[in-house]
């Protein structure tokens, strides 16, 4: 049951990425290229996603618990530290280098392109390494 809902959520998410153009690195890089031929498309995707999620979360999180679990799993950390800023900076550099962030890269695996496979393999290695860096279990 949990997996069925997760599958539907993943499917909806993937459809959103496809319609949003996020599975095209050229569109993403066009958004990040503010000094060139700027493509604002990603802004519309983000705005649609954030607005919808904000309304839904507001209604949902009034409840005591989700449908299939005992509690909501909301990250408890509130601290803005160097790990947050440094990690986000390293992520941003990688994002700008190729135009893939994790969701679109995984969804693009469907295309079986060697470029996507290489990126995803390196990203998975990065997750594995990142989890083994000192003090990462905070």
């Amino acid at each position: 049951m949990r997996s069925a809902f997760a599958l539907i959520a993943g499917l909806l998410f993937g459809l959103g990425l496809v319609f949003g153009g996020m599975t095209q690195p050229a569109v993403v890089l066009g958004f990040l290229d503010v000094a060139g031929a700027w493509n604002p498309q990603l802004l519309f995707v983000m705005a649609g996603a954030v607005a919808t999620t904000a309304i839904g979360y507001r209604l949902l999180l009034r409840r005591k618990r989700p449908l299939l679990e005992k509690t909501f799993h909301i990250p408890p950390t509130r601290q803005v530290d160097m790990r947050l800023i440094g990690g986000a900076a390293v992520f941003g550099i990688g994002w700008g280098l190729v135009g893939y962030c994790p969701g679109p890269a995984l969804a693009s695996l469907a295309g079986l392109s060697p470029s996507t496979l290489l990126f995803v393999a390196a990203m998975a290695l990065g997750w594995w390494l990142g989890a083994r860096l000192p003090a990462s279990r905070s």
């Binding site: 990690g87 992520f91 550099i93 990688g94 994002w95 280098l97 990203m123 997750w127 390494l129 990142g130």
Partner: peptide, 10 residues
């Protein structure tokens, strides 16, 4: 880029 995205997001 993949390494940066993996490590950075983690």
């Amino acid at each position: 880029a993949g390494l940066c995205v993996g490590i950075g997001t983690r």
